[in-house]
Design a protein around this nucleic acid. Sequence first.
DNA 1: ATCGTGCGCTAATCCGATTTAGCAAAGGAC
DNA 2: GTCCTTTGCTAAATCGGATTAGCGCACGAT
Lengths: 357, 357
Amino acid sequence: MSPRRVTLADVAKAAGVSRTTASLVLSGRGRELRISQDVEQRVLRAADELRYRPNIVSVGLRTGTTRTIGFVSDTVATSRLAGDMIKGALEAARDRGFMLFIGETEGDSELERLLLQAMHDRQVDGLVLASMFTRTIKVPEDITNAPAVLLNALPEQPTPLPAVLPDEVEAGRTAARALLEAGHRDGVYLIGAGPGMRDVPPESVAAVERLVGIREAFGDAGVAVAGGRTCADWQPEYGLAATRELLRTARPRALICFNDRIAMGAYQALDDVGLKVPDDVSVVSFDDHPIASWIRPKLTTVALPYYELGRKAVDVLFTEIGRDHAGPDGQGEVHRVPMPLCSRESIAPPPAAAPAG
Amino acid sequence: MSPRRVTLADVAKAAGVSRTTASLVLSGRGRELRISQDVEQRVLRAADELRYRPNIVSVGLRTGTTRTIGFVSDTVATSRLAGDMIKGALEAARDRGFMLFIGETEGDSELERLLLQAMHDRQVDGLVLASMFTRTIKVPEDITNAPAVLLNALPEQPTPLPAVLPDEVEAGRTAARALLEAGHRDGVYLIGAGPGMRDVPPESVAAVERLVGIREAFGDAGVAVAGGRTCADWQPEYGLAATRELLRTARPRALICFNDRIAMGAYQALDDVGLKVPDDVSVVSFDDHPIASWIRPKLTTVALPYYELGRKAVDVLFTEIGRDHAGPDGQGEVHRVPMPLCSRESIAPPPAAAPAG
DNA sequence: ATCGTGCGCTAATCCGATTTAGCAAAGGAC
DNA sequence: GTCCTTTGCTAAATCGGATTAGCGCACGAT
């Protein structure tokens, strides 16, 4: 079918030189090894005319580098949430002429082992180990064969692997400040976790860190959080239930929902009792899920910077690949990516506190 | 750092045989080439003890097959909608010991060219060309170098490439029947396209085919669609606007929304005028987007079978890879994947037609 | 003329497998 | 004893590049 691929030998023949010379010229080492201008031009022209492209498989075999990185996740690739993470990784890789292998473990460590093996069999130059939601993971042992980076995950035990994570603590502060700046000082309730540091779902790094940031910002402002409700799962129905429960005993002025889906449930609960967002109750949330701009009024939320996380992970991976992989270097660095506030329509000054502007 | 990988030569040495023999045994051709039981056992044991795994890069160079397929899309991978398509493809590939390269073109044909090149440079065994939403695409010429399949896309010009698509026409019938079976015969309106065959957004294969199915099912039942509204974009806000507009002049009994986001907007419009779903107005939709089960009442919708689409595409690709790539074989086959109805809470019998059950 | 020295290029090896062709030893026929 | 088979295994070539070592030539110095 397709005409055979053009190889270095073809180029060499067309230029009337040896494969060695052609290789030297094309790898830019012609000068260094004293190839004449004339020959250099001939080779370059031949390569161009024949549309020569080096076979990366061959290069991979000889040099050990395949210009390929593996992106292994529990279920990120196919999570509707974090596709942007892949996108960021994809583009960062593309910028450097690298391709991405994608693999999913679904949390199954046997699958993970197999997947990492398959990637090593294909001589990937590096690995990104990603998690759909921020959490601590057990770093598989086979990892150390190639440079690797944790994405949206922290190692259970100390490892030399660097990690890239959203700056959740600062996000917590950001959310809190958004309310404080609107003038809220009373009746601020949390939905999804809190108010105490122990009221968090297990395994959720995000919950803990967001809560830390929230408490810190309010603390600094001398404001006390009025209360909070945990949710078994951060889904709309649980947000709805938690908010309903809250409304039975309290009259909130503002809600900090721990994610947008919870906020969606909260909207429904508020609507049920005739409370208007943001006039009666302000709502701020986290993630910037697409629904945040679909529900009305549009939700003000602190965005998870998926795209940047993906990019950053690959960037860090490349410096890791570049590094001399000499001795054990202790603890991997943790990179925090800022979470920007998406100001929309769900925050207003509290009714009582709306004097002359 | 990591101990050097175990190679075939290591196994051969450990078993006290030549690399040839080791290769023969491990590739299962030992019997055929008269290798003795004794030697066979020695090789097998050595390979096992050393945990030998063939280097796929090397195999790729020698045999030309890399057990890798490329998944090229406009923006599927990172679309929150169609991640399941990747998942299906990933799992189908994994079942056969294949890995997936992911690439996005973002509709840029130059990027596409580069990406396909990069994949060929890595000797992929086959390609999936996917589109985020069903549409016709211009098939790049470089494609013919390897087996390929179109996913969620139809070729602009006839090609020998097979295509895998959701069965949208049948989905249209399914949606229509869901209403008919609930007893709806009057006041059925379409939101997003229709009622005429010319009232469809450009480029949207889904719109046309869904409309065909809807009209057919109603036609067969002797029922006339009461009317329809097109939407410039199938987003909630346009669904909201279109439904509002409709409500100004009509009193619908049932709505067929062309996707779930439109339905979300329709819900809002109905809510605004105090109409209850499904008691006053039944709603049925397409896609089974996550919000379909988040909004209240939960939306009955005809699901886009993303996961199955991805699986099917890879399955078809494998038969394509298996085929003798001999002569030009005319037109590629079109595979349609069924779209199942997700019955939830948004359909009820029309008020007048709710007699004794 | 002889030797040394750059210059400009190439032969040969390697990466880790697969695959073809063929060799040495044992067994059988005559 | 010779020749032919069959058996059981291996040497060598190959895939497409990168890389090391070194060859042949021209030129200048002696």
